[in-house]
């Protein structure tokens, strides 16, 4: 499958796109071998600043593995992904992941409160220079119509959808450049999912260099949010 070949333009990318015509993330002839089976092969793609690219395809077609391979959580068998025109393996992985941030489908939270979860990543060396960002947190709570007391909720008692909101807030406040979203709203109620969608659109429009790869099984949502869509299919090899 070649994403660029299969891509179809749905809506014009954000007005910011013209600022930088070069892709910020691209891959050439990527392949991932699982045992003796190619999950996908000869996959090429480009992601431009200011755009949301939707990824769709049946379960097991390797969409999640594709996002994981971009940030090196799963090593590619063939090909290289380039971020800012530099091969991803040449980046120090934590720095790359601080800029190209993956949100796995299953929101994994630590024990403690929601606030503890939001503060967690600031302890990592790569985020040391970031101060506490209470304003962003409060603002995001307002965006999601959540009370401030939500920050003191026990993370272990959150529903799946609430967990996804916390995971999204946790990622957004770290100000990455690219978000790799693996079904980020799959456990949310329709209203929260719409709110998340608006929040992500707002995040994208805040800075001209940002971009999103968004996996979803919801065709209406992908149709609405993305400027392009890539259909993912199993490799026949």
């Amino acid at each position: 499958m070649t994403c660029t070949r299969a891509a179809r333009r749905k809506r014009p990318p954000s007005t910011h796109t013209v600022v930088n015509p070069n892709p910020i993330l691209e891959g050439q002839n990527l392949g991932l071998l699982l045992g003796r089976r190619w999950l996908w092969r000869n996959l090429s793609f480009s992601l431009f600043p200011g755009e949301i690219v939707g990824i769709r395809g049946r379960s097991g077609s390797g969409k999640s593995m594709f996002l994981r391979s971009i940030v090196g959580l799963t090593p590619l068998t063939e090909g290289t992904v380039r971020y800012q025109n530099r091969p991803c393996p040449d980046w120090h992985a934590p720095h790359l992941r601080a800029q190209v941030m993956l949100l796995p489908q299953k929101a994994s939270l630590t024990h403690g409160t929601v606030q503890d979860n939001l503060d967690l990543a600031r302890r990592f060396q790569v985020h040391h220079d970031r101060g506490t960002d209470a304003l962003t947190a409060i603002q995001m709570l307002e965006d999601f119509n959540l009370p401030e007391a939500f920050l003191q909720r026990n993370a272990e008692t959150l529903s799946g959808g609430e967990g996804q909101i916390v995971a999204l807030m946790r990622a957004l406040q770290l100000h990455p450049q690219i978000l790799l979203l693996d079904e980020p709203t799959s456990s949310m109620d329709p209203h929260s999912a719409d709110t998340a969608e608006r929040r992500l659109r707002k995040w994208l429009d805040e800075h001209p260099d940002r971009a999103i790869l968004w996996i979803s099984h919801d065709p209406d949502r992908l149709e609405r949010v993305s400027s392009r869509q890539w259909p993912f299919e199993d490799s026949t090899e």
Binding site: V71, L73, A93, P94, H95, R97, A98, M101, L102, L103, P104, K106, A107, S108, T110, L120, A121, R123, F124, Q125, V126, H127, A167, R170, A171, L174
Partner: peptide
């Protein structure tokens, strides 16, 4: 595993 990979994806080093 899911938790470890979540925080690696947030920029944690392997030691962190």
């Amino acid at each position: 595993k899911d938790w470890i990979e979540t925080i690696l994806a947030l920029g944690a080093t392997r030691w962190e």
